[in-house]
Amino acid sequence: MSSLMLLAKLEVGQHFYWEIAGLKVHGQVFMTSWFVIGLLVLFSVLATRKVERIPSGLQNFMEYALEYIRDLAKGQIGEKEYRPWVPFVGTLFLFIFVSNWSGALVPWKLIHIPGSELAAPTNDINTTVALALLTSLAYFYAGFSRRGLGYFARYIEPTPILLPINIMEDFTKPLSLSFRLFGNILADELVVAVLVLLVPLFVPLPVMVLGLFTSAIQALIFATLAAVYIGEAMEGHGEEEHG
């Protein structure tokens, strides 16, 4: 019973602090993110070790992933402009996707670390805010590099009355991006944890499967919205709302 209790214990908002040059960072987030990064790099290296015209095995799989990402970027940014943004949008998708699934599939909780527990990197608000702010920077960069100072014109489009709302959007976009991802992943892990706490066998399984689904959807939503914002900044019209 006590070992079961240990397995099922819930810890929210507790962090395993590392101190780097006097700055406090969340060690558990970096540990799992390194795992995710290592996995991505490993797959990339293995897939491109011997590139062939007729792909097979891992190369085929990774090409499928790349074509998926390209289609995503192409659909939102446009045929002409999407190519330079494939690495950014694609890495967003892959990093979030692998992070979410690692949180759902890898039994991190079996590895004990002091003061906290391992979970998906996207489970931490720092990660999601970092990604969301990078997305903001990316679409600002896209807008300015494409249209120069004319980018500001979009704040008074379609009418100057919307100026405050348009400015506010620049704050709501990263906010909604980061909190959507953070909330979904944290909530999913919490629901699974609570269910495991209450009924340790079989009952959490459907919720876990649902968690896999929402994790994938969240990665897709984040990457798609990032691409939408970038495309929008380069096009320079319309205020698409996001859910």
């Binding site: 908002g13 962090h15 780097i20 960072v25 969340h26 970096f30 608000i125 720092n126 702010l133």
Partner: peptide
């Protein structure tokens, strides 16, 4: 700490992502 404990993890994570 808490749920919304934002600290140096954020910029480091951003750099790491880039």
């Amino acid at each position: 700490g808490g749920l919304f404990d934002i600290n140096a993890t954020l910029p480091l994570m951003a750099v790491q992502f880039l």
